[in-house]
Design a binder for these strands. Structure first.
Lengths: 250, 250
DNA sequence: CCCTTATATTGATTTTAGTCAAAACCGGAT
DNA sequence: ATCCGGTTTTGACTAAAATCAATATAAGGG
């Protein structure tokens, strides 16, 4: 039931003092293999727990950067906006994921982070994280990996935005959601989306009507069923095929 | 003539022993304000200088990650490819910029890096950079800023790919090139592009014909002149307007 | 519970970019 | 200089998604 990562050998849950630390550790140190003392050290960094109501902002563009945020529970989106009001959702974020990496660059947040459902995050003061990184090289290295992974993820999204058709984009998106739910121990074929068609569209570079049509098309083809935000994947394999081949099949 | 950054107060060119170090320092430590000793230390990290011929690969997808590369001279592109042959140029890179950040994530390069003209790069062994970061906190922090900036850059590109029309994308691209040439002391209104229309198209999520038409359109409107790879920006302000407003003006 | 508002679906039409094809152009090699 | 392959431009046509518009459906507040 629980995600596989929770069984990591070097990790003993008894050493984590707050449940808040747990959430950050999941992303930040579980795969590192810290010893008990190191986990203690890190646990001390993660101080504040914040609750954000559905629709509330975790941070806004331009706000001073103080801390990274590890999502403890809930679901958030991040989005950047142009002066002319154009908006782009740059990501959806669920438990165990890290937010705010973009803000290190200029000490200001470059995007809005909005809760799509009531959420909890842990604050990780960044300067303290850097200090501790010096003492724990494996933590530093792991942090670098996390940042790098974010870059790789963005490149994947650029490929999607630059070269896929509407249906392929949606298939890709659904498979991504599916995988992330699976990692967290939820069903990979049956889930509720938290975001609107418009938000999906923004993320995928499509208008909401196009997203809706793409959903309908996948349903017609009996690859998924969709009722509003509730999605069932009937045929994972065919969904993967949809993503890969614009020329092949219907 | 020389970019403004070269006059940074805490930087004395006499302490840099190899010209190779110079190139990396430009990206990696100039803005940090290292003292002389620290610059020495960093200088020792940057060992190999590599030359890559036009058309040659700096690294290929899947290759083992050993080092970051700082571009010393020349011009490179990075691109990711899908199994089905689909390709997306994820960036163009010129002197002073850092390549390979994506590879930290999995210890493998996730993209190809190809020289678009004869180029030179400095190798920065990553594990040594991490070691030295421990000794020089400001260097570590600056490195984090560089990674973060890459994420911000990617978000900008996602906004472009997700919400701009062909002409806006091209305008945005030309302004980006213009700015980067300007930083390096070259003309911001008169330059030669190193990449083909196809590569520009891939980067912008457009087909080469569409790129060509967009060039022609900007020329018709007397905003630029274009002869093959040679571009002159006649009216920077109007070019900026093109980028910002899909609805406004012709 | 109903009412109001936000969200989602579907259709008709227009706009945009992609595709296919031909011609012009450029640059490097002989 | 000339030839050749790769690149660029332009045109005609097609495909895809955006836009406009009308309903339909769901969700939240009183």
């Amino acid at each position: 039931m629980l995600p596989e990562r929770f069984s990591a050998k070097n990790f003993d849950v008894a050493h984590i003092r707050s449940s808040c630390a747990t959430c950050s550790l999941r992303e930040l140190c579980l795969p590192v293999g810290l010893n008990e003392e190191e986990v203690e050290t890190l646990g001390e960094v993660i101080v504040n727990k914040k609750k954000i109501q559905r629709g509330g902002y975790l941070h806004r563009t331009g706000a001073k950067f103080q801390a990274l945020y590890a999502v403890k529970s809930g679901f958030l989106k991040t989005c950047v906006l142009e002066e002319d009001g154009r908006q782009q959702v740059t990501g959806f974020h669920m438990a165990g994921e890290l937010l705010g990496l973009d803000a290190i660059s200029t000490d200001m947040h470059t995007c809005d982070a909005v809760a799509l459902e009531d959420s909890e995050v842990c604050e990780i003061p960044f300067s303290r994280l850097e200090d501790i990184s010096r003492a724990i090289p494996s933590l530093m290295h792991h942090f670098h990996k996390i940042m790098s992974r974010e870059i790789v993820r963005d490149h994947g999204l650029m490929l999607l935005l630059g070269s896929m058709k509407a249906e392929e984009r949606l298939a890709s998106f659904l498979l991504n959601m599916s995988r992330r739910f699976a990692i967290r121990g939820y069903s990979e074929t049956d889930f509720n989306l938290r975001m609107t068609r418009e938000e999906i569209g923004s993320y995928l570079g499509l208008k909401l009507e196009t997203v809706s049509r793409a959903f309908s098309k996948l349903q017609e083809d009996a690859i998924i069923t969709v009722n509003n935000k509730h999605v069932k994947i009937l045929n994972l394999e065919r969904l993967k095929l949809k993503m890969g081949n614009s020329s092949c099949g219907t």
